[in-house]
Structures are given as structure tokens and as C-alpha cells.
Design a protein around this nucleic acid. Structure first.
Lengths: 350, 350
DNA sequence: TCCCTCTGAGAAAACCTTTTCCCAAATCGC
DNA sequence: GCGATTTGGGAAAAGGTTTTCTCAGAGGGA
């Protein structure tokens, strides 16, 4: 190929139109269009001449005109209410990833929790003829503040509560919790505590239930999960509750925490009490928020929700929906994975 | 207004075109267009009738068609290489904020540090006829991996190194450092240390210089800044260096840290040594990363770079550029602000 | 030579809106 | 009552592309 050697003016001052290409190549716009798109019939020589001309002129088709005609804009909207972005960002990166590879651009729409703003964004997206919408949030058990049912474009929900009959993707929180607790069991931990977030979160119950199930399956004593806040401070408090009792024999030898911040609080509090991690107590967190997990001492083993993958899958699901392939409605749960660092020790035999 | 009472089918299955509105209202498309846009001359009655029809039909103009004609898409591209997003996110939120209010949508383009990906995104944006581009990164002193000079649309750089002759907005790091050190001075601290990040970062030097300047202005002893990493671990190490010497009298009574993670490491290390914060040593961080600053014990006073504001300003700057108003090229520095929490104590008189 | 088919390419409609020009009717001045 | 101006509204082009239809010419078979 000699294409790379051509002096392509990639950023010309004024866009070159198909009409100009046609004029220079001495053909009609129709022929030029067909030549560039591999349509129609013409001599190979003509086709190549037109292509060469287009390349030399730095022609790039006007997407707006194409979209207008094709009724397909190769653009989707990404709706989120996660301002802080701890969850949104990997998710968005995944979505973007999956779509860019298919030539699709992403409109970013931050709607906070503002219905008016959400409505505004959705209308703007629809006006701009997005091919579809991905809705994502910071909580699996809450709706975005905007109604996306009965839109004329497909919608995929990722990490947020889907409307009835819609396609939704969430992390498998029960599975994630199982990973953590089963890991403890394999390591020979016998008294496994669970310190989690506020009662108002659905995932708190989902994970607690999985926690109980695994303990029962392994015939281990089931402690009552300690519910509090998603904060380090709560981790400290929880340690005070768990390890405040006089008798050392009643203490847990493992703590499965609802998120990494709680886990960090737990680890710090344990150290302050002179209790060793992982020797005396193993700790596992949730979210695998690297910047936290890697800063704890020792570094924190944590459950990763694979949000980037979730985003990718959401992007691909939307794409196939846009392509007209019917997708099974309902919620699809994607597996978590356990990222093992040093806060839970090695198996006895290992 | 009775508009709210109308049964507006906001999400009709098939978009209503201007042609249909015109047909129903019994006028030509030209007249319909003018009626809806407040252009042309016609009886108030005709105009109102057309508007009423449009409303009843739920007509929304096709942005694609409008953009094609107006050569203005009311869309801009946001280029970033900050995957993790600690800096990008508030910035993006600010950009989005400023633009949405003006009816402009934002294409999100994550280019990582991949030139090919960057090129791809830029071309896609250009093809989609964005009105302008905002480039943002995770470092003020690095270029994005893509060349944005000589594009046919205006470009604004926010929190990343601008090309020569371009418009750039960054935080005033020197000013931010001054805020912190001067705050210490006002509180009567006399031996103020500076623990910062890697030498390879330009901001490390900018802040260190401001730190020295303020100390000199106040005739205080200038310690050599300790440069290391942007991590908690480095904060611990730095404390070992600063407070390892035997004589308590040589110890600093304040530490200005290069970011909040370092500050957190410093605070934790001090506590472990039994040195009280803020009584014995005041600590100030940088970035005001709330989730960290609020979790330190005591909560961390920190310099906030006002990234959301920076984003807003970048959005507005791009908008005025797009509107044809010439903007002074060069780098504009936006002030930081000090967020006072409890890690640096109260003034002697307060 | 005549008819048919195939080939290569162009004309024009379509997508949807905006805007410029134009025209018929009405109004006005005298 | 007649020419000039205003008024209300329509026709058509423009924006850049894709696609269908059409058509002239070439080649082939009889």
C-alpha cells in the first residue's frame, strides 16, 4: 500500500465535500459515493481513481448528512447520576471502549438527581437522534430520576434499576460475597464476621444473605451482620463492637467488609488494638477500589465487580439492540472476581 | 399558560416532522418553520395556530438537519486521558454544566495514552461536526497523545499542557501553595515542612517555590522540600525522616503536603508516633479529595483546585470561541481555595 | 442487420430544516 | 380609480450524502 506515503491533509481548514471529490475525479457525486462505499458497478480503474482523489483531497464524509439519510447516527447517550464517579468511571470507560471500536460516539449526560435536568438531556439526545441510551447510576437499587420507558430508541440499564421489561446488567453481588466468604473458609477461618453498609441498600441484604448461606454450607457459626455506614469511621466502630468483649476466644478471625473504606477502617482499628492482619484476623473488602485497597497495611484483598466489563457488555448489548436483534429483557448478573492481596493470609498448607 | 395542560406525547414512536406539522396546520413548511422560530411575518393567529399544532403533535426539530444547514452542531468533544478520573470528573462535570445550560451536548472521548485511539476519536468528532474540543488530562505538564493544532474548530485546554498559541486553563498551583503556607504562618507555626510528590512533576517545583517564597517573606526557616511519591506510604516515610532525629526541638510544627494521600500518610504516621495533630503538628493537604480528606483523623485541611469551576470556565471559553469571539491565547490560571477542617488547629487568639 | 442483455455511469429524489426570494392580495395616498 | 407599498405566505434552493431509477453504448447471438 502506498496510502501511508500520501500527503493527507488530515485537518484541512475547510471540509472537502463529496461534490468536490467528484468534480476533481471527473465523475458525478453518485458515482463518487458508490466508489467510496463499494457500491454500484464501475470499472476497477474508475473506482480506484475516485478513491485516490478522495484520499489526496483528505475527504471525510459529513456524518451529519449520512445520519440524516440513514436514520442512524452512530451515537449513543450515556446517562448517569454518579457525580463522584467511583463506579461510573470504570463503567463509562468500558462502555466507551465497546462502542468506539464500532465507530459509535458517546454523549455524556450527567443528570445528578434532577428530574428536570434528566428530561432536558434525554430530549436533547433524542433530538440529536442517538441510536440508543445507556442508563447507569451509583446504586443498583435505585431508578434514575427520569423515565426512559417507551422511548423510540433502545435502552440498556447498567448498574442501576431497570424499568420493567427492559434490559439490565448488574454485578452479581451474591456471587461476589460468596467468593469472599468461601475464600476465608478455604483458608481455614472459622469465625467470620460481616461488617457492611446501611440497611437501606439492597446490596447489603443480598451480600449478607450470601454470607449466611456460605457459613451454613460450611457449618460455621453465623454471626449477625453489623450494618452501619460506608465509611472508615464505621469500620473503626465495628471493630470496637466485635473486639470489645473481654474474652479473646469470642473474637472473629476474619471480617468480610461491605466496601473497601469499611475494610480500611477495620484494618486500622485492628492495628491500633495490636491485633495482627492477616495473622490474627483476615480482612476482605468490596469494590476493589485500588487506590484504597493498595494503601491499606497490609494491602487489601477485595471483591472486584468488574465494572469495566459490565460497561463493555452494556455497550455491546445496546449495539445489538440497535442492530435490531431482540435481546431477552430482564436483569443479567455479571460475575465478580476476587483480587487477592495480603490482608487475608495464605492457606495453612500454602 | 395552558401549555402544561396539553397532552404532549413526549416520546412518540415515530418522530414528527415539520412537514407533518405544516400539513396539519394547513400551511407550507416554510411558514411552519418561521412560525416556530419567530421569524418571518404572519398574523399572530397563524403563528399561534402552528405552534399549537406543533405542540399537540409533539414536534421536535431534527437536530441533524438543523446542524447540517447551520453548520453548527451544538456539540463539543471532551478529550481526556485520565482514566481513573479523580481530576477529570469534577472537571467534566463543570464542563458539562456550563455547556448543557447552553444547549450543547458533550462527546466523551477517553484516549488513554494511545495516539491511535486519540486520532480515531478526533476524526470521529470532526466527522460529526463538533463545534469545538476541550482537551483535559491528569497532568498539567503533559500533552495529550494527540495533535490538536490546526484543527478547523477551536480547542480549549483544561488542566493539561496547551499547544503554543492555544487557550489553556490551569489551576494556580503557586497560589494554592501560598494559601496553605500562609495559613500556617497566620496560625503561628514556625517550622513548616513540605512533603511533596515526584521530582518529575512540574507542579512539585511550582509549589515548592511558592512554599519557599512565603517562608522567606515571613522570615521563617526554609527546610528542603522532601520529594517522593504521591502515596500514603511516602507520607509515612517522610515522617520517619522528619521526626526520626532525637531532639524534639528540631521537629517541624507543620507539614504542607503535596496531595491528600501523602497528608493522610503523614497524619497516620504521626499518630503512630504519639505526635498529636493538630496540637503538635499542623497538616495541610492538596487536592481536597473529599473522600480522603474527611476520613483522616482529624479531618484534613486541604487546598482545593476548584476543578469544577475550571471546567465551567473552560466550557464557557470554548463557547465564546465557537461564537466567534477571539480569546486571548495563553495560559490562564484559576485560583485555588483552602478548605479548612481540623488538621491545622485554630489561631492562637481564636 | 436486428434485437437483447449487460455494463458503466449519471440524474434525481430523499432525509429535514432554514432562508432567500418572490408573488398575490390588500392597503394606502392622491 | 390607479399606481405604490405593505402584508401574509409560498416556492425553491441549500446543506452533503445515499440510493433508486434511468439511459446510452457496447457486446453477443441469430
Amino acid at each position: 500500500m502506498s496510502a501511508d506515503a500520501e500527503p493527507v491533509p488530515v485537518s484541512a481548514k475547510s471540509p472537502v465535500t463529496l461534490r468536490e471529490v467528484a468534480a476533481v475525479a471527473g465523475v458525478s457525486v453518485a458515482t463518487a459515493s458508490k466508489a467510496l462505499n463499494g457500491q454500484g458497478r464501475m470499472t476497477a480503474e474508475t473506482r480506484e481513481r475516485i478513491r485516490e482523489t478522495a484520499r489526496a483531497l483528505g475527504f471525510r464524509p459529513n456524518s451529519l448528512a449520512q445520519s440524516l439519510l440513514r436514520k442512524r447516527s452512530f451515537t449513543v447517550g450515556l446517562l448517569t447520576n454518579d457525580t463522584y464517579g467511583r463506579f461510573s468511571l470504570p463503567l463509562m470507560a468500558g462502555v466507551s471502549d465497546a462502542l468506539v471500536d464500532n465507530g459509535v460516539s458517546v454523549f455524556l449526560c450527567n443528570v445528578e438527581d434532577d428530574t428536570r435536568l434528566g428530561q432536558l438531556h434525554v430530549e436533547a439526545m433524542l433530538d440529536k437522534r442517538v441510536d440508543g441510551i445507556i442508563a447507569t447510576g451509583k446504586r443498583i437499587d435505585r431508578h434514575l430520576p427520569v423515565d426512559l420507558s417507551n422511548l423510540r430508541v433502545p435502552v440498556v440499564y447498567a448498574f442501576t434499576q431497570p424499568d420493567a421489561g427492559a434490559v439490565g446488567l448488574v454485578s452479581d453481588d451474591a456471587g461476589g460475597a460468596r467468593l469472599a466468604v468461601e475464600h476465608f473458609c478455604r483458608l481455614g477461618r472459622r469465625r467470620i464476621a460481616h461488617v457492611s453498609g446501611p440497611e437501606s441498600f439492597a446490596v447489603v441484604h443480598t451480600r449478607a444473605q450470601a454470607y449466611r448461606a456460605v457459613l451454613e454450607e460450611n457449618s460455621l457459626p453465623v454471626g449477625e451482620p453489623l450494618l452501619g455506614a460506608w465509611s472508615e469511621a464505621w469500620g473503626h466502630e465495628a471493630v470496637a463492637k466485635l473486639f470489645g468483649k473481654a474474652g479473646r476466644e469470642g473474637w472473629p478471625d476474619a471480617a468480610f467488609c461491605g466496601n473497601d473504606q469499611i475494610a480500611r477502617g477495620v484494618i486500622d482499628a485492628l492495628r491500633e488494638r495490636g491485633i495482627r492482619v492477616p495473622d490474627d484476623v483476615g480482612v476482605i473488602g468490596f469494590d476493589n477500589w485500588e487506590i484504597v485497597a493498595e494503601a491499606t497495611r497490609p494491602p487489601l484483598t477485595s471483591v472486584d465487580m468488574n465494572l469495566a466489563t459490565l460497561g463493555r457488555e452494556a455497550g455491546l448489548a445496546l449495539l445489538s439492540l440497535v442492530g435490531g436483534q431482540p435481546a431477552a429483557p430482564g436483569i443479567r448478573k455479571l460475575p465478580c472476581r476476587l483480587v487477592v492481596r495480603q490482608s487475608c493470609g495464605r492457606p495453612p498448607g500454602g
